[in-house]
């Protein structure tokens, strides 16, 4: 996905301005001139500067034909689905990993994506199960990381 630098410039300009404004609210250290606001203000100002610079270069190189170029995969429905399944699967994990547990989430994350990428259902099921087992063995048993088991907790009692 290609965008003209002008749009990135606007985004960084807005971000830098927001940072400078927000940093003014940070409390000062009593008796000191330099506190929590100094560094974010400098970084915000730098973002404003580079944002402006990107705007200028974007305007200079501006061509209507290259203002927005979508990624090549948007022409292929299967690839769009795969990208959406990837992002949606991660969102699902972020929202439900602690409630449903990682074993269930790994199936949601990997099984439909494998099918979408052309794997056979039996193979996809085996790979999902193998991945879940490897993660349980590696993280929980070997390293002692407390990954939530959620809906399959009863299987481990």
């Amino acid at each position: 996905m290609r965008l003209n630098d002008f749009f990135f410039g606007i985004a960084f300009l807005a971000l830098g301005s927001g940072v400078v404004v927000e940093a003014r609210e940070f409390p000062a250290v009593p008796g000191q001139l330099y506190g929590a606001a100094v560094f974010p203000t400098l970084v915000g100002a730098a973002l404003v500067f580079f944002g402006l610079s990107l705007c200028v270069s974007g305007v200079r190189d501006f061509r209507w034909s290259s203002t927005f170029l979508p990624p090549p995969w948007v022409k292929f429905p299967r690839q769009i689905t795969a990208v959406l399944l990837t992002l949606g699967g991660l969102l699902f994990c972020a929202l439900f990993a602690e409630r449903l547990g990682f074993m269930a989430c790994i199936f949601v994350l990997t099984f439909p994506l494998q099918l979408c990428l052309g794997a056979r259902p039996a193979h996809a099921l085996a790979v999902s199960a193998g991945t879940a087992a490897a993660i349980e063995a590696g993280f929980v048993w070997l390293l002692g990381a407390p990954l939530p088991r959620g809906v399959v907790e009863s299987l481990f009692r």
């Binding site: 990837t86 699967g89 991660l90 994350l109 990997t110 099984f111 994506l113 794997a119 790979v127 991945t131």
Partner: peptide
Amino acid sequence: AFLAPVVLAFAS
């Protein structure tokens, strides 16, 4: 088809 989902699972 197998590699990408497995890496994704380990990443999450």
